[in-house]
Amino acid sequence: MKTPPIVSPEEWEAARQRLLVEEKQLTRARDALAAKRRRMPWQAVEKAYEFDGPEGRVGLLDLFDGRRQLIVYRAFFDPGVSGWPDHACVGCSMVADHVGHLAHLNARDTTLVFASRAPQPEIERVKARMGWSMPWYTITDSFDADFGVDEWHGTNAFIRDGDRVFRTYFINARGDEALGSTWSYLDMSALGRQETWEDSPEGYPQSPPYEWWHWHDEYGGPTRPGSGSA
């Protein structure tokens, strides 16, 4: 192993400061990309999709759980997929392992769910084995094919206006590697982090950062500014 040079603390700090310039550029570029996502056109979802859940058959609108935004990760836990029936695919399992506490997303009026073609008893068994707690539904129709996730994993973002549902963004392939934190999921959503520093279209819900952040067991119910309307 050929290691980098060994330097003094002063030289190390100077090198870090040089690299920090590029890191800040990357952060600003990421913020600019998220701002463009918030200005993406919306695609109306006209088909009535159905899923099996822990309490029976539900529609896409039900997956929102009353919140304004919905993020759906298509996880490959299906018959015929590597790992079946003991595990979901190893990559999708790593994604599941990285999902943060959902209370923070819920506080921003956003619901995250996973969806696969495995039956509910198999999903519940694997969730218990792996310690996963996210809502996880069974795809029963062409949802995966219609939204680009029938042959590969991917993450779709939706928003609702009353009972009307719209697709707002889609991330797949290596883009899914960056997801898992509250921030990364919100950054792909139509409303973003909903914080005052963001470059968002006029009228989007916003509040100061830190002020809405809480310990996950002290939110006292989801914060839903303008819930249900666009």
Rank of each mutant, 00 (worst) to 15 (best):
D161A: 09
R160H: 05
R167D: 14
I171K: 06
R160L: 08
F170M: 07
Y169S: 10
Y185E: 11
R160V: 04
E177I: 12
G175K: 03
D187P: 06
I159R: 06
A178E: 14
G175R: 08
V165M: 06
S189M: 04
A190L: 15
L186T: 03
A178I: 01
E177F: 11
D161Q: 06
A190I: 14
D161M: 10
G180L: 04
M188I: 11
R164P: 07
T168E: 05
A178T: 07
Y185D: 06
Y185H: 08
D161L: 12
N172M: 05
R167L: 14
E177C: 07
G175W: 03
T182P: 06
N172G: 10
D161V: 11
D176K: 02
M188K: 04
V165C: 07
V165Y: 00
S181E: 09
E177Y: 13
V165A: 14
G180A: 01
M188A: 06
I159K: 02
S181D: 11
F166S: 07
A157L: 15
M188E: 08
F170S: 13
G175H: 11
R174H: 15
N172R: 15
S184D: 03
T168M: 08
E177D: 08
A157I: 07
I159S: 08
G180N: 00
F158S: 10
L186E: 01
Y169W: 09
F170N: 10
L186A: 04
S189Q: 05
V165G: 06
T168P: 05
R164D: 09
V165Q: 00
A173V: 13
T182Y: 04
S189T: 02
R167H: 14
F158Q: 00
F166N: 10
I171T: 14
V165P: 02
T168I: 15
R164Q: 12
